Amino acid sequence: MLYVVIPAYNEEGNLGILVEGIANMAQANGFAYTIIVVDDGSTDKTPDIIKELSAKYIILPLENQPNAGLGRTMAKGLKKAAEISADGDIIITLDGDATHDPVYMPPMIERIRQGNDIVIASRFAPGGVERGLSSFRKFLSRGSGTLLTAFFPTKGLRDYTCGYRAFRAEIIKQGFSKFGDGFIQETGFSVTPEILLKLRSLGAKIDEVGFMLKYDQKVGKSKIKVSRTIIQYLKMIIKFKLRGL
């Protein structure tokens, strides 16, 4: 079984395209699936769209009220996936803005079946491309990656900040078993490296597949606050180094 966790905040222009793409990919490859959509207190038509999609596709809707941030949203979605999944199942996370194409799921799933615990759709692996990002955003993504690599070098890992990932269900269960509610503590975009670093400390085997980030396909404004995210990353790095993770 494939469980796909989607955090969604004001994604009325993107969510339908993404869910349809996931369902079509699953049908074409013979995957049984459940999509867990976590609405993070959206103020647009996202809640209505989730209801409409739930009538057509296999969706488990969850919500935060009010808006709680990406970290809390990911924690809720992954915790639910861990609760309802079985050993041998695969959990995939990806952004709700349709910049992560479901076409990359089959090769990610295949790498999991080959023995990896985590497979990341990476912009920096061979074949990886970023489309539609400004030069400044490219600089920030590479800068944060360089910083995280310097402090937490990990075999098979180049892209610490892309949220498009496949997990063996057991490794997510181990994360919650080991850390409890402390598994996911970051509230903002720093949650993406936090999850990897926590699971890295459990000995997770990590691999990557190259993918194209289609940022020019996104409808609506970016939700990332650059200066706040940089500060969150730095605080997280210091905290993790002090804890010896």
Rank of each mutant, 00 (worst) to 15 (best):
S85A: 09
Q65E: 09
T149M: 14
I172P: 01
D159L: 07
R123D: 08
A166W: 00
R200Q: 15
V4L: 03
G156T: 11
I90V: 05
L234C: 08
E20V: 12
K198W: 11
Y160W: 08
G210P: 10
Q185D: 09
G203D: 10
M1D: 06
D40F: 07
G156I: 12
I171S: 06
T229A: 09
S135F: 07
K138M: 12
I172H: 02
S222L: 12
Y33T: 06
D89E: 05
K205G: 05
I118R: 04
Y3D: 02
G203E: 04
N14P: 04
F167T: 03
A75I: 00
K56A: 11
Q27W: 01
D95N: 15
T229Q: 03
V103F: 12
E12M: 10
F124I: 05
E12A: 10
I58G: 06
F183Q: 01
A55K: 15
T146W: 06
E130D: 11
I58R: 13
M105C: 01
R228P: 06
I6A: 01
V191C: 07
A28C: 00
K79M: 09
F176Y: 12
F183G: 03
M1Q: 10
M108T: 05
E63R: 14
V103P: 01
T154W: 00
F176G: 00
R72T: 04
A86V: 07
N64L: 11
I231G: 09
G96W: 08
H100T: 15
G180F: 02
R131H: 12
V219Q: 13
I22W: 11
I112C: 11
A98T: 01
K51C: 05
R228W: 13
S85T: 00
V219I: 13
Y33R: 01
S141Q: 11
L2H: 01
A26V: 05
A26P: 00
I195D: 00
D216Y: 08
E110A: 11
L245N: 11
I171H: 02
